[in-house]
Design a protein around this nucleic acid. Structure first.
Length: 514
RNA sequence: GCGGGUGUAGCUCAAUUGGUAGAGCGUCAGCCUUCCAAGCUGAAUGUUGAGGGUUCGAGUCCCUUCACCCGCUCCA
């Protein structure tokens, strides 16, 4: 990464402005002032995102490549609900994990997880002595706290004279005598406050604790809880995958960076179930396949990277395993750093085991492998991609300022993802040309998203198609009427060539369908 | 959640010490137009982000709030 090229040479606000101007992305409920962390897709953005999801579904579910064993992957689809029995989230660990109390320091503006915060206090504390905070596991911080306390009390520091207590066990009245880890005066720490990262609602008319439900924070659990249903209803056997595209919700503390960190977002997830001893084969397979897929839909530049996680940043379900990696993109707002598009994780058998435990089915729910004549909880390789983040990366990759063009900018989408595949124009809006163009449009629109536009000058129409990212334009002129040929204008090169009008559909098929 | 900045037509921006909210571009309609936002004529468009206050009078001053941007923080 040392000689990585410079970040994209455009300002994010220019892309945001284009997205709004051309109808890719709008702020949610904008006429009421918007709402933080929520975004709507306009006509072009909807088409773009749909094309991305369709490409994923086709390449991963309908027509996946061969696996490492040389046989086609077996992957089936699922569409589970956003709201489920709340026990799902107790089993998955989200109810606990999403409720971390946080402590803010008014003086240093730092924020700490309350359960990571400890205080050093005199062992013979009588309720009036100063306490000094430090972070659990931070030996240097703890030493510093000791020195600070000894200096304050003007005596030698002897660990035997001090006790360590969790911050969470302090009474509210004690806070005024606690010195924060990064503070100079005591009393700057707030009481622990809950940051509930799962959205809550209520199912049914009565709004009480029993009716409380959660909007799912990931689509994955819908797959795990349907694992047995899919096995029983579908002729699949390990190794196989279950795929799902759907909305998920996280009450992010700080939504930021356009659609990158939204509170409502869409995931494209596969849980691929494997034999426990084959993770070392399947994990690198999926990692490389997913990396290659993002490249195949147009993220071909240096801004796409694959990054293996360090051991200490792994999630609770992946501590032991074949590995976890992020597929990351260098967005203008992360540059020179990167932002995550997709995580590929070996989740081990964590989730299936947890649901076996929480449903009380236990070992009985183990999978029976007929070929091996043995029972086990399958392990899982999870490629989990963000549809909105992917769409945003595609928008960033496509955005190409070009002062030599009238539009000033061109969106160079991969033809497969382009929301409009072609513009179809009569060179002038008379002499029979619009009729021919409209007929061509009617034929092409059956298979490809095309725009017929007879108005204004040809230059304006090309410029508009540049901003919409249409890879091709077909123009009918007076020669068309004589020899049945049209001009193809290519978006990226601005080249023009003439082809027969009855070859237009084939021309598009060769370039869009591969 | 903290600090800083921004907010006027779809976009870019004007609007004197507080004194009738405007222009260009784009959009739309018509004319014209034989290949890259050409030209002519005309049209639509705003509770100046929202709410409150001061004032005879607020885009302008004050308060509150919302959204976006930058920096922290957070991201199981």
């Amino acid at each position: 990464m040392t000689d990585a090229p410079a970040a994209p040479v455009f300002r994010m606000e220019d892309l945001v402005a284009l997205c709004r101007r051309r109808g890719f992305v709008f702020q949610s409920s904008e006429i009421y002032g918007g709402i933080n962390g929520f975004w709507d897709y306009g006509p072009l953005g909807t088409a773009l995102k749909r094309n991305l999801k369709d490409a994923w579904w086709r390449d991963m579910v309908a027509c996946p490549p061969d696996g490492p064993d040389g046989r086609p992957l077996s992957i089936v689809g699922l569409d589970s609900t956003i709201i489920a029995n709340p026990k799902v989230w107790e089993a998955s660990g989200h109810v606990g994990g999403f409720n971390d109390p946080m402590v803010d320091c008014r003086e240093s503006k730092a924020r700490y997880r309350a359960d990571h915060l400890m205080v050093l206090v005199g062992a013979d504390d009588d309720g009036s002595r100063r306490m000094v905070g430090f972070l659990e596991g931070d030996d240097a911080g703890r030493e510093k706290a000791g020195k600070s306390l000894a200096k304050y009390e003007k005596r030698e520091f002897d660990p035997a004279n001090y006790a360590i207590r969790p911050f969470t066990q302090l009474a509210a009245t004690d806070l005024s005598r606690v010195l924060g880890p990064d503070a100079k005066e005591p009393g700057s720490l707030t009481e622990p406050r809950m940051f509930n990262l799962m959205f809550e609602s209520h199912a049914g008319a009565i709004r009480d604790e029993d009716s409380k439900v959660y909007l799912r924070p990931e689509t994955a659990q819908g797959i795990f809880v349907n694992f047995q249903n899919v096995l029983d209803s579908t002729r699949v056997r390990v190794p196989f995958g279950i795929a799902q595209i759907g909305k998920a919700f996280r009450n992010e503390v700080t939504p930021r960076n356009f659609t990158f960190r939204s509170r409502e977002f869409e995931q494209m997830e596969i849980e691929f179930f494997i034999r426990p001893d084959e993770a070392e084969t399947w994990y690198p397979f999926w990692r490389d396949l997913r990396h290659a897929w993002w490249r195949s839909i147009g993220l071909t530049g240096e801004n796409l990277v694959l990054r293996e996680h360090d051991r200490d940043e792994l999630a609770h379900y992946a501590k032991e395993g074949a590995g976890t990696c992020d597929i990351e993109y260098r967005f203008p707002f992360t540059a020179p750093g990167f932002g995550e598009l997709e995580g590929v994780a070996h989740r081990s058998d964590f989730d299936l085991k947890r649901h076996a435990e929480f449903t009380g089915k236990g070992e009985k729910s183990r999978y029976f492998d007929q070929e091996r004549n043995e029972r086990y909880f399958p392990h899982v390789i999870e490629p989990s991609a963000g549809a909105d983040r992917g769409t945003l990366a595609v928008l960033c990759e496509a955005y190409t300022p070009d002062d030599s063009r009238p539009s000033g900018v061109v969106m160079k989408f991969h033809p497969r993802l382009a929301p409009v595949k072609a513009g179809i124009f009569p060179l002038v809006n008379k002499d029979g040309m619009p009729e021919v163009a409209e007929k061509l449009h009617r034929e092409l629109r059956v298979k490809y998203a095309c725009e017929f536009d007879p108005k204004q000058s040809i230059g304006k129409r090309y410029a508009r198609m540049d901003e919409a990212g249409a890879p091709y334009c077909f123009t009918i002129d007076s020669d068309t009427l004589a020899d049945q040929t049209v001009t193809v204008r290519e978006r990226d090169t601005l080249s023009q060539e003439r082809i027969s009008i009855d070859r237009v559909a084939t021309y598009l098929a060769e370039r869009i369908d591969g």
